[in-house]
Design a protein around this nucleic acid. Structure first.
Lengths: 333, 333
DNA sequence: CACCCTTATACTCAATGTTAGTCTAAATAC
DNA sequence: GTATTTAGACTAACATTGAGTATAAGGGTG
C-alpha cells in the first residue's frame, strides 16, 4: 500500500510535500463505509494516503491507479475534493514552515468486490460523525453537541452572540427547520472552531471549549483526515442529488428499497418510500430485469438495474432527496 | 505582481512545483470580465499566477492576500476551484518528469474598486469562450463548432459514433433541448479532445481535427489557463443558483434590471424579467434603499441593496436561473 | 400638451413538481 | 387462516415554474 518515490522539496525557505488522500466509500442498505488504515493499533486511524508519484500523467489517473491497486478492481467514480494546505499541518521542528499539501479525492467502490487487506478495513463513517446519522431520529450525541454550542453562544457579547446563533442555527438547523444533510463540512468546521473535537486541541487551535468538553474522545483521525472525510461526505451528499452516482455503490441488480436504504445511509436521513420510488422511475434511471427478490420479508420485490445509457443522456439526474430550503430559478425568456 | 520564494522541489525522481492561478472575476450589466496578464505583448495571455509562498498559514489565506495585493482591496469571495496537475504540463528537457501542480482559485471582485495596474487588464471572458455567450441568440462561432463536431462524429464507426453523438448532444444541447450554461468546462474539454482549440495541437494531444480546423486561432492562453478559466466559469454559473454570490460583483445599490443583466452576463443566457424579479423578491435577498435611479431610459427604477443578513440566514439561496433538466428530490418522511 | 418610446412593476394562468398521505397486493410466520 | 411485513399504485393539497398580459411613470418630439 505504500508508494515509492516520496517527493519532497527542499528549497531554502521551506518545503512542500504533496500527498494524495482518498476518501474511498462503499455503501449498502445498512450504512456507508470508508476505508481506513490501522484501526486496530494504537496509531491514529488514517485515510489511505501516500505521496504523489511523478510518473502519472494526470493527478486523476495517478489517484485512480493507486486506489485500484489498493481495492483490487477498476474504479467507476473518482472525483477530486479539495487541496488542503495548512502550513502548520505538520509543523517542522526547525521553525522553518514545512508546507504539506494534501490533495483529497473521493472514490466510490462496491465493497463486495474490494479485496481484503490486512492493512485496511471498512468502517462506518458515522463512527467519526455520529451527529450526521439521523436515520432513526436525532442521535444521542446531539445532546452534547447542543450543550457545547449553547455554551459557546452564551459566552459571547450581544452582537457576536447573534452572529454565533445564526451560524449554529444554519449548520445544525433551528427549531422547526429542516436538517440540511449537505452541511456536514460546515458542522465539522464549527465544532472544530469551538473546540468540541479533540484534534482542535491537538493542533493547538485557538478554541473556546475546554479540553474536557470534547465530544468523541476516542476517535481521533490522523492530521486533518477528519476534515477531508467531512468534505467527502458533504460532496457525496450533494452529488447524489444531481448525478446518478449512487449506482456506483450498488450491486448489478437491486430493489427499490435497497436503493432507497443506500441513499438514506449516505444522506443520513429517512425518505418517503412512495415518493422515492416515483422519482427514480420518473427520471428513467432504472429498468426492470424481469427477476424478483423473494428474500424481502414480505411481498417479493422486482429486481431492477441501472440504465447505463443515462450517463450519456442526462446532464443532471440524481437520485432524490428533498429540496433544500429554496429552489433556485428564474425563468428563461 | 510577482511573488518571492519560488518553491521548487528537487528530489531524485522528478520535481514538483506548486503555483496558484486565479480566475479573478468582475461583472457589470455589460458583461463578465476576468483579469489577465500581458494582453498587449506577443506573449500568450495568462491568468495571474505565482508560486505558492511558504509563509501563509492556509492556502486560502495565501491566495486571498496575494489577490488583494493585486487588485488593491479586501476580497469578498474566494473559492478553490481545482488542482491541475498534468505531468507534462511543462515537460522538462531532461526527460525527467517535472510535475507542475497548479491550484486554481476563483475570486470575485467589484471591478470599479480594483486598482489599475500596467501589468494586468480586464477582458471579457467571452473573448476566450465566444460560444458561451448566448445572450443575443446563438453566436456566430457556433457554426464552426457544429461543423467541427459533426466531422468528428461522422468519422467514427457505428457504436462509437452513437457515443460521440450523445456526448456532443449533452454538452452543446440537442435540437429542442435547453442549453445548459453550467457545462462550460465539459464543452471546452470536448473541443480540446477533438482538437478544435489551438492548445490541443500545441500540447501535442492526440486529436482528431487537423490544425486548420482550429477555432479561435488568435486567442491562445498560457499553459492550461483556458481550462482553469473554463472551470471557473462553470463553477460560478452553478454557484449563483444556490448561493448569493452575484452580490459580490454588484455595487452597493442597484436596480433589479442591473442585477438581472449581471446574472445574464455571467450565465450567458437571457432571463424572463417578471420571473427574475419575483424570485429575487420572494427569496428575500434584497431590500429597498428608498432611492430611485432615474437614468434608466424609461420609468425610474427603485434602487435596492443586498440584505447582508441573508448570508447568515439561508443555507441555500441564489439568484435564479431556470432549473436544469430535472429537479432532484425524493421526499422526506 | 398629446403621443410615442422605454423601462418598471404588478398580476394572471396553466403546467408541473413536491409533500404527505391512503389503499391494495403478495409474500412469510405462527 | 390471520397477522405481519414489504411492494407498489394512487390521490389530494400545495408550491414552484414558465410564459404572457396589463398598467405605471419617466423622457423626447411634434
Amino acid at each position: 500500500m505504500t508508494l515509492p518515490n516520496r517527493l519532497r522539496s527542499s528549497s531554502g525557505t521551506g518545503g512542500v510535500t504533496v500527498d494524495l488522500s482518498a476518501v474511498i466509500v462503499a455503501a449498502s442498505p445498512d450504512g456507508p463505509r470508508v476505508l481506513v488504515r490501522q484501526p486496530g493499533t494504537n496509531l491514529p486511524v488514517a485515510l489511505p494516503s501516500g505521496p504523489l508519484e511523478a510518473h502519472h500523467r494526470t493527478l486523476d489517473a495517478g489517484l485512480r491507479s493507486w486506489v485500484e491497486e489498493l481495492v483490487g478492481y477498476r474504479l467507476g467514480y473518482v472525483e477530486q475534493l479539495y487541496t488542503f494546505g495548512d502550513a502548520n499541518r505538520h509543523a517542522s521542528a526547525r521553525g522553518v514552515p514545512n508546507r504539506a499539501l494534501s490533495i483529497g479525492y473521493l472514490a466510490l467502490v462496491r465493497e463486495s468486490r474490494a479485496k481484503q487487506d490486512h492493512d485496511v478495513t471498512w468502517v462506518s463513517w458515522y463512527r467519526f460523525f455520529p451527529w450526521e446519522d439521523r436515520r432513526h431520529g436525532e442521535p444521542a450525541v446531539m445532546a452534547l453537541v447542543r450543550e457545547g454550542i449553547a455554551g459557546w453562544i452564551a459566552e459571547a457579547p450581544g452582537d457576536e452572540r447573534k452572529h454565533r446563533e445564526e451560524r449554529a442555527g444554519l449548520a445544525f438547523g433551528r427549531a422547526g427547520e429542516r436538517w440540511n444533510e449537505e452541511l456536514a463540512l460546515e458542522r465539522y468546521e464549527l465544532l472544530y472552531e469551538i473546540g468540541l473535537v479533540p484534534e482542535a486541541h491537538r493542533d493547538g487551535a485557538a478554541v473556546w471549549a475546554p479540553r474536557e468538553a470534547v465530544i468523541l474522545e476516542g476517535d481521533i483521525l490522523l492530521a486533518d483526515h477528519r476534515r477531508i472525510l467531512a468534505t467527502g461526505i458533504s460532496r457525496l451528499r450533494s452529488k447524489i442529488k444531481y448525478r446518478p452516482v449512487v449506482f456506483e455503490l450498488m450491486p448489478p441488480r437491486f430493489t427499490f428499497l435497497q436503493l432507497q436504504r443506500t441513499v438514506e445511509a449516505l444522506a443520513g436521513v429517512e425518505l418517503h418510500k412512495p415518493n422515492f420510488r416515483r422519482l427514480v422511475k420518473h427520471q428513467g434511471l432504472v429498468e426492470e430485469t424481469g427477476a424478483v427478490a423473494s428474500n424481502t420479508g414480505g411481498r417479493p420485490a422486482r429486481l431492477i438495474r441501472f440504465r447505463r445509457d443515462v450517463l450519456l443522456e442526462r446532464p443532471t439526474s440524481g437520485v432524490g432527496l428533498p429540496a433544500a430550503t429554496s429552489r433556485r430559478d428564474l425563468t428563461r425568456n
